[in-house]
């Protein structure tokens, strides 16, 4: 009897450990693309220093990214992005706080690919808006690979596109997120 109780408690502990797991990265990647359909040049940038934390227990997910960490191929474009559009001196960070809406469908202790929907609030350029994005979680060997893709209407965040470049810069920017999350040792 005692032994079975012990095993039961041990089992409870292990499941608790498994579900209380947090995953994180500091080297996540975000691709930003605001190329207008007819534009001859690509207006795209990449940031490889994205911080992300995912709590397996409740699906809570957070991203933080430094605007100045976005690298463009052309220095001039990068300067305009920082100075005229996102004003990164005033608003150095963009943040997302939300959750995996269908977290119950994800088994973090079993390898597999799970289609998820992430919902939450995105803050950039000092403005906060609700966003919802389809994404994918790939659980493999105790690590989680998280990817998602969504579009943001730049005007929603108070970013205005001057008329002269309206044919080059799209009104909506495509954001692609890719993070390899490691278990957080606590």
């Amino acid at each position: 009897m005692k032994k079975s109780l012990f095993i039961f408690l041990l089992g409870v502990c292990i499941t608790n450990l498994a579900t209380a797991q947090k995953f994180f990265t500091k080297t996540g990647r975000i691709d930003f693309n605001a190329t207008a359909p007819s534009s001859p040049e690509n207006i795209q940038a990449v940031n490889r220093t994205v911080t992300c934390v995912l709590d397996a227990a409740n699906g809570n997910m957070q991203f933080a990214v430094l605007i100045k960490g976005f690298t463009f191929e052309r220095a001039l474009m990068q300067e305009h992005f920082n100075e005229n559009y996102l004003e990164s001196d005033k608003f150095p960070k963009a943040e997302f706080k939300g959750a995996v809406a269908n977290n119950a469908a994800v088994n973090y202790s079993k390898d597999g690919t799970y289609a998820v929907t992430v919902k939450g609030k995105l803050t950039m350029h000092g403005q906060t808006k609700d966003v919802e994005a389809p994404g994918k979680l790939i659980v493999q060997g105790g690590k989680v690979n998280a990817t998602a893709s969504f579009a943001v209407l730049l005007a929603d965040y108070g970013v205005s596109i001057p008329g002269v470049v309206a044919d080059k810069v799209n009104k909506t920017a495509k954001i692609e997120v890719a993070c390899n999350l490691e278990p957080l040792k606590s």
Binding site: K22, F24, V53, A64, L66, I67, K68, G69, K93, L184
Partner: peptide, 10 residues
């Protein structure tokens, strides 16, 4: 330098 990320957890 692109900035500072303060995180009590990480």
């Amino acid at each position: 330098c692109t900035g500072f990320m303060a995180d009590p957890l990480l």
